[in-house]
């Protein structure tokens, strides 16, 4: 008996509330609307309205005339458009693979293979860099990566990078940005994944052990499938944040004395359109491209992982 019937175990793993299969009342009454109203107002003001405004700008020109897809065609033809999207594709692939593999892996190890005290300390330590704001973490890395001031300068020099300019060669940028993103963001996700693993009842793990599954088998065939939704959730958020990367390359651009392209990411290109060319319409068109990209990725992940499926009627 090597394979485990995951589907059989799944309902038992669901959080409290669903397990007792309480049916939701058909209507929530006024209280429900009242509770969400605060969020809805903010969502409309800072989410939906700006998106609508961006869509309006992207379809018009600076004289307010309807341009159809003209703005989109214009920005795609910009010589910086494809390189910028190429940059974030490489970055996203590296970042998402590393994030999913390492944060889930670390959470599994912290959950099952470590004494509770040590595990708690490590989770805290992993989380600490995430408490720094994005800009502060970039500054930390600027010092870490400049061989003339870095505490590990000898290591960077030994790796063949004689000076800061060599470290910031265009080919190294995705790796550097992934390092920064991982250092600042992965710790928080490890804690979340750890929490997700905590939701799996001990009986399930116990049953797996009795059936002869070792730690790796348990992780691969029981724990990871059972936190699939959390992984999808993390991927959606990390993807959205990744496509919008701005602060990190922007700061590197200044700190590297201009050796990093000022339009490395699409968001920087949109920024250049809006605030240097004064072309808010073109900038809006680029932001719509990013929105569509983010929605498409989220759509695929949501439908594939069943993230929004409600288990009420099981």
């Amino acid at each position: 008996m090597t394979s485990l019937d995951i589907r059989g175990a799944a309902p038992a793993a669901d959080p409290i509330g669903r397990r007792t299969s309480v049916r939701r009342p058909a209507a929530g009454g006024l209280a429900g609307y009242l509770f969400v109203s605060g969020y809805v107002v903010l969502l409309l003001a800072f989410g939906v309205f700006p998106t609508g405004y961006a869509a309006y700008l992207a379809l018009t020109n600076d004289r307010g005339q309807f341009t159809g897809l003209g703005q989109f065609v214009k920005v795609v033809q910009d010589f910086r458009f494809l390189p910028a999207f190429g940059d974030i594709v490489v970055y996203l692939v590296l970042w998402l693979v590393l994030l999913v593999v390492l944060s889930v892996g670390a959470a599994v190890i912290l959950r099952g293979r470590m004494r509770p005290g040590l595990s708690a300390t490590l989770r805290f330590l992993f989380y600490v860099p995430g408490a720094l704001a994005g800009i502060a973490s970039v500054l930390v890395w600027l010092f870490m990566l400049d061989p003339s001031v870095s505490p590990v300068g000898w290591l960077i020099s030994a790796a063949g990078f004689g000076n800061f300019a060599a470290v910031l060669a265009p080919g190294n940028l995705p790796v550097i940005l992934v390092l920064i993103a991982f250092w600042a963001g992965a710790g928080g996700w490890m804690v979340v994944m750890y929490g997700a693993l905590n939701n799996i009842p001990d009986e399930v793990i116990e049953a797996a052990r009795i059936d002869g599954a070792g730690p790796w088998r348990t992780a691969w065939s029981v724990q990871i499938p059972m936190i699939k939704k959390w992984i999808a959730y993390m991927t959606i958020l990390a993807f959205a944040a990744g496509t919008q990367i701005f602060v990190e390359p922007q700061l590197l651009q200044t700190a590297s004395l201009g050796r990093v392209s000022p339009t490395w990411s699409p968001n920087q290109l949109a920024y250049l359109y809006a605030f240097q060319k004064g072309d808010f319409n073109g900038a809006a068109a680029i932001s719509i491209f990013l929105l569509v990209l983010g929605l498409a990725c989220a759509g695929v992940l949501v439908t594939r992982s069943g993230l929004f499926t409600v288990d009420d009627n099981e």
């Binding site: 600076d62 309807f66 341009t67 159809g68 897809l69 003209g70 004064g278």
Partner: peptide, 13 residues
């Protein structure tokens, strides 16, 4: 078609 054939220029004034 309407969107593509459209409309005013997207260039800045």
């Amino acid at each position: 078609l309407a969107a593509l054939a459209g409309c005013a220029s997207a260039e800045q004034t």
